[in-house]
């Protein structure tokens, strides 16, 4: 009986050490279009290329020299 009580208590205590799975809930809002759909006709590569060019305008070592 004492053994069983000890087992139950230790099981109860150990349960407190467990970590519940925490996941971010699924998005429940409206769906958003891809950024390359409206102005780039769905051409992702073209859009990415435009952004890459734009990115490099921030690099004055390339812009000046």
């Amino acid at each position: 009986m004492r053994m069983l009580t000890a087992m139950l208590i230790s099981a109860g205590l150990l349960a407190g050490c467990g970590e519940a799975v925490q996941t971010v809930g699924d998005y429940r809002g409206k769906t958003d279009a891809k950024p390359y759909e409206a102005n780039y006709g769905g051409d992702k590569a073209k859009w990415e290329s435009a952004l890459r060019t734009r990115n490099q305008t921030q690099n004055e070592y390339k812009r000046v020299h």
Binding site: P35, N39, R54, Q58
Partner: peptide, 12 residues
């Protein structure tokens, strides 16, 4: 701006 192939204005 991202949909226009541009970056955020603050940085640009």
């Amino acid at each position: 701006r991202l949909a226009e192939g541009k970056l955020p204005l603050c940085a640009e």
